[in-house]
């Protein structure tokens, strides 16, 4: 079981709700993915074009993870969080602050500042960040419930280009590590899980697939396979042959006070 902030989840696949062709396809894909935790966003209300996704998601029993997308500073993110908690009735929060509109890359300085404050305000904070091991430890120290390092630029489907840093984050973290953004194929999600990630978050790769419902099922299987492989203990490539002059020959040439 994945446990975040004392809440247990059987599924280790988090999904986003954006970029689907219709709300119905989105709901079908979520069901097919087996996800239990889904992200959504908050926007200024447009009364002529109301996006009726909140009630169906709630009715389907998903735990909601609202994000702060659109926030460009810590101050804006804190404001957005308070609105979000009010609108969606949950203290869970995917904290994301991206001042850069082209690549939507997260701002580490503002994120740490906002996270510290939001934890004090009682939010369950899951920050979306670069795969920066030191930043992840700092976020853990201010009380974040998990960290969400990116695999690659969001929507880029490039897979785990940050793998060496994700490995360090996983090695060091005391809170769940959820690999977010850039996972374009089920094999990449399995890779993240095999490396020891606690969960992954996938949106674009499912939403923009030719058959989103089938792709959601494929991600579900991949995440489970990767997790099981990790638990089972992965096999490794063959052992390199030893070389050069012997380092332990001295043990055989006398002088060893062998008592063992």
């Amino acid at each position: 079981m994945l446990t975040i902030a004392n809440t247990s989840f059987s599924s280790r696949l988090l999904t986003g709700t954006g970029k689907f062709s219709t709300p119905a396809t989105m709901l079908d894909a979520l069901a097919s993915s087996g996800t239990e935790l889904v992200t959504l966003a908050l926007r200024r209300l447009d009364r002529r074009d109301r996006d009726a996704i909140f009630e169906p998601l709630q009715a389907a029993g998903y735990r909601l993870l609202p994000n702060t997308s659109g926030a460009r500073t810590a101050e804006e993110a804190i404001q957005a969080a308070q609105l979000t908690r009010e609108a969606m009735g949950t203290p869970w929060l995917k904290l994301e602050i991206h001042p850069d509109p082209r690549y939507l890359l997260p701002d580490p300085v503002e994120t740490l500042k906002a996270a510290e404050r939001l934890v004090q305000l009682g939010f369950i904070v899951l920050p979306y960040v670069h795969a920066d091991p030191v930043l992840c430890k700092r976020l853990e120290e201010v009380g974040c419930a998990a960290v969400m390092p990116l695999a690659a630029p969001i929507g880029s489907n490039q897979g785990l280009v940050t793998a060496p840093f994700i490995d360090i984050i996983i090695e060091q973290s005391r809170v769940p590590v959820i690999v977010d953004a850039g996972l374009g194929a089920p094999s990449q999600a399995a890779d993240a899980m095999e490396r020891g990630a606690d969960a992954v978050l996938v949106n674009t790769a499912i939403a923009t697939a030719t058959h989103p419902v089938a792709m959601a099922a494929a991600f579900k299987a991949a995440v489970e396979a990767g997790f099981q492989a990790r638990q089972a203990g992965l096999a490794t490539p063959g052992l390199r042959a030893a070389a050069s002059s012997p380092l332990t020959a001295f043990l055989e040439t006398g002088g060893d006070s062998d008592v063992g």
């Binding site: 332990t248 002088g255 060893d256 062998d258 063992g260």
Partner: peptide, 9 residues
Amino acid sequence: HPLSDADLV
């Protein structure tokens, strides 16, 4: 529980 040199290595 003494250790030999080989143990230490």
